[in-house]
Simulated assay, not measured.
Amino acid sequence: MSLEKILQFLVNYDIFVFIGVFCCLFAFCLVNWCKNPYRRQNRKLEMCRQRIASNPRLAGLFVVMLPDEYRRQWRAYVNGGAQRPSLVFEFVPKKRHVAFWHLFALDAAVCSSYLWAFANDVSAREYVVVQVVFWLAFALFCVVDSVLFGKKEKKARRVFGKFVAQLNALQKADSKQLASQIEGIRKENAPVEETLQRASELLRKNGLEGNRTVQEQQQINKALNSLLQSYARKASSKT
């Protein structure tokens, strides 16, 4: 089919072609506006956060649910010895990809072909009007898409922030729990040998040193000092 016949077909059925062009443009805009590159990441982070909150002791097992970039950050946190997960974890922004761009390219090519028809018949000014409306609609799409993508990224940052806050709270809770367990051993007034053995097993399991803040470590040290002082008093009373 020659170009003249194609152009003649477009001119003869211009109304139907314009309806199809703008329907395709609307579908292109709608798909891209609804597309959210952060949707899967948000779902995984929120699911992992809820699992950790419900069962903190199995936090290491739930890490496999995280996206790859955040699993790498978890390994860096575990192996790096940072005081807080928030010092290691960083939000990873997604790139914005345009879906069905080939559909838009074809749509724009069909619409722009009417400029050739207008060049052959300058009285068909409606073809120029259609071009203006089409490209103004595309410019509006770009603005709206940029605004929507910014909102999607802002929401993703909030979900990520809640996840990291949960990790920080988990570490803080572990430190408090360790200190309270040491204090509980001291208050039980068990035999000295049993007390020291239980305290030793507890420290071996949780670690005397860890990724803790100065205040948290001081709290644990205070509980240990109280336990040692109690042991010293018991030992002196026996002698």
Rank of each mutant, 00 (worst) to 15 (best):
C142N: 15
A119S: 14
Q166F: 03
G161I: 00
A137W: 09
L136G: 07
F160Q: 06
Y127K: 05
R157V: 13
E153K: 05
V130C: 10
W135F: 15
F138C: 06
K162G: 11
V132N: 01
E153D: 12
F134W: 02
F138I: 00
K155P: 03
K155H: 13
F134N: 01
F160A: 02
A124G: 06
V130H: 04
S123H: 10
S123N: 11
W135P: 04
F118Y: 15
A137L: 13
G150N: 09
Q131C: 12
R157D: 06
V159H: 08
F118L: 10
D121S: 07
S123P: 00
Q166H: 04
V133I: 15
A137P: 00
A165N: 13
A165K: 14
F163Y: 03
N120Q: 15
A137I: 02
V130T: 04
K152A: 12
V128I: 15
D121W: 05
S123V: 08
S123F: 07
D121E: 11
V144E: 08
V164H: 04
E126N: 12
K154Q: 13
L140M: 12
V133Y: 05
K162R: 15
A165R: 15
A124T: 03
V143T: 11
S123R: 11
K152Q: 15
W135T: 04
Q166R: 12
C142P: 07
F118I: 01
V143R: 11
F160G: 04
V144H: 07
K155L: 12
F160C: 05
A156I: 01
V164T: 00
V144R: 08
Q131L: 14
R157L: 12
K154E: 13
F118N: 07
A156P: 03
L136T: 15
L148D: 05
R125M: 12
W135I: 07
R125Y: 10
V143E: 08
F138H: 10
N120M: 12
Y127A: 05
Q131R: 03
A137H: 06
A137V: 08
A137Q: 10
Y127Q: 00
E153S: 11
K151P: 01
E126A: 09
C142F: 04
V129M: 06
F138N: 03
D145Q: 11
L167T: 00
R157M: 14
V144A: 13
V122S: 14
F138K: 05
Y127W: 07
G161Y: 01
K154Y: 08
Q131E: 14
F141E: 09
D121Y: 03
F138T: 00
S123C: 09
